[in-house]
């Protein structure tokens, strides 16, 4: 299991090296600090959610509602700011609580009612998006306080924005949780086999509940970052982000069936996707085509890691 993952990460590192070499030969601007920060900032909300999604998928669940939760949180912030006398600080807190409650809603249905997470979060994907539209209807809300916009648009230390620090901090935190703590071990065990976990005395329902609440809160946080970066919210904020986020996690070698994956793999996949998009943008390749290339990369990387180059055939134990 670990052996397969190491092979995968080798492939990812090689792909990343290739992308960086090609990109830097295309443009001198590419390796500049400004471009590197810019490349992160354009998708920072997605990659932050991808970190948390790694844990959810390793646990053999999925959260399709993340994009809608980002939208709901951003719209709730806009609504609270415009329609109520609440200050922006309190509005942020309320949005994070909304994320917690939304995650708990998913968690209750998945962990305690025993419904498949694919179905539950598909329903809340529609429902959360609906609530976001109820709040802002077809308006756009803008004119947030200056300090709030500054969080998303200017550097916190030098040119590095707050969101990038948040990403690094969350990565470090989740790395420790997943790979260095009992909670992380349980995440892997439950993802490998829920029955085994139950027999081992693990409270799997509580564990899943915590992960879904975490996923909701991180999504709500990412939605706020989006509002700060763009400086405006509309009903369709972060629409369709869920599939991009899941693509990144799966590209990072996390098994869709749970039990296999690492934070480092997800980080590699994030770097590849961001640098690849950046390089293609330098070549004037448009967004839809960029997504297509990443789609091909996703499929080929899964096949590539299965190839036993010595015998040049599909390895049996990984198949299926």
């Amino acid at each position: 299991m670990t052996k397969g993952l190491n092979g995968w990460i080798r492939v990812l590192v090689m792909v990343l090296a290739l992308v960086v070499i090609v990109n830097s030969s295309l443009s001198e601007e590419y390796l500049s600090v400004r471009n590197q920060i810019n490349l992160f900032q354009l998708s920072i909300e997605k990659v932050i959610v991808a970190l948390m999604m790694t844990l959810v998928i390793i646990n053999a669940e999925i959260d399709l509602s993340v994009g809608s939760m980002m939208g709901l949180s951003a719209c709730a912030f806009g609504w609270l700011f415009q329609e109520t006398s609440l200050s922006a600080e309190w509005a942020i807190l309320v949005c994070l609580i909304i994320g917690m409650l939304g995650g708990a809603l998913n968690g209750v249905f998945v962990a305690y009612a025993g419904l498949p997470s694919l179905v539950v979060t598909l329903a809340t994907l529609i429902g959360f998006r609906g609530l976001a539209r109820v709040l802002v209807e077809d308006r756009g809300i803008t004119d947030f306080p200056e300090w709030f916009d500054a969080i998303g648009q200017t550097g916190l230390i030098g040119p590095v924005p707050f969101s990038l620090f948040a990403f690094l901090l969350l990565f470090a935190g989740l790395y420790v949780v997943l790979h260095k703590s009992g909670f992380g071990r349980k995440t892997f065990v439950i993802g490998t086999s829920r029955d085994v976990a139950v027999f081992a005395g693990i409270d799997t329902a509580r564990h899943k509940m915590i992960l879904f609440i975490g996923s909701g809160m991180v999504s709500a946080f990412a939605g706020l970052l989006y509002a700060a970066r763009v400086g405006a919210v509309r009903g369709d904020v972060a629409f369709g982000f869920e599939l991009d986020i899941i693509t990144m996690v799966l590209l990072g070698g996390v098994s869709i069936f749970g039990g296999v994956g690492s934070m480092f793999g997800t980080l590699m996949a994030i770097l590849i996707v961001l640098n690849l998009r950046n390089g293609m943008a330098l070549l004037n390749i448009t967004g839809h085509i960029q997504t297509g290339v990443i789609g091909v990369l996703l499929i080929t990387s899964v096949i590539a890691t299965r190839l036993d180059l010595g015998r040049f055939r599909l390895r049996k134990e990984n198949a299926g």
Partner: peptide, 22 residues
């Protein structure tokens, strides 16, 4: 090729759309 369907179709979701754009 025995790649999980969710991965394949997540990839072709993007791929087919980009072929359409082209």
């Amino acid at each position: 090729a025995k790649v999980p369907a969710i991965i394949v179709t997540l990839g072709t979701l993007a791929l087919f759309r980009s072929v359409l754009v082209e």
